[in-house]
């Protein structure tokens, strides 16, 4: 009886250690797996290129028919500052930085998306 009581305590300690290892391991796995936010530019269905949000860059997206959009990343926000399209909706769109935000240029079929970004704090569905 005494011996099995001792075994109980050993069991509980071992289990708590296993749980702790699981917990630390998971947290470690999570910390090395956090991805940088990036801007993904798509032309039609194809990915034109990805640009990290933390680096300022000006990229001219040139299309095969001669039309273009100028993507500018500044202060962690992506914006289209100039475009050849007639309506200019993409140029007028505000700069984007949050997860799943997009700028679309319909005439040029250019879509600018944010991946791995911060969660949007407005217009989300809460449970």
């Amino acid at each position: 009886m005494k011996k099995s009581k001792r075994n109980d305590i050993i069991l509980i300690i071992v289990i708590l250690i296993v749980a702790l290892v699981f917990y630390i391991g998971f947290n470690y796995y999570n910390s090395i797996n956090t991805k940088e936010p990036v801007t993904v530019v798509k032309v039609g269905d194809e990915v034109y290129g990805t640009f990290p949000l933390d680096k300022d860059v000006v990229e001219k997206i040139e299309l095969s028919d001669g039309s273009y959009n100028i993507l500018e990343i500044h202060n962690g926000k992506a914006d289209i500052t100039e475009a050849s399209c007639p309506d200019g909706i993409c140029v007028n769109h505000r700069a984007i930085s949050k997860q799943n935000e997009t700028i679309v240029c319909l005439p040029n079929k250019v879509v600018v998306e944010i991946h791995n970004g911060q969660k949007n704090d407005v217009d989300t569905i809460t449970n």
């Binding site: 099995s4 075994n7 109980d8």
Partner: peptide, 15 residues
């Protein structure tokens, strides 16, 4: 297995 007392068995059961 008779290795544990009733408390140990219960702990395993709970987990």
């Amino acid at each position: 297995t008779n290795f544990l007392s009733i408390t140990g068995v219960s702990v395993l059961g709970g987990i």
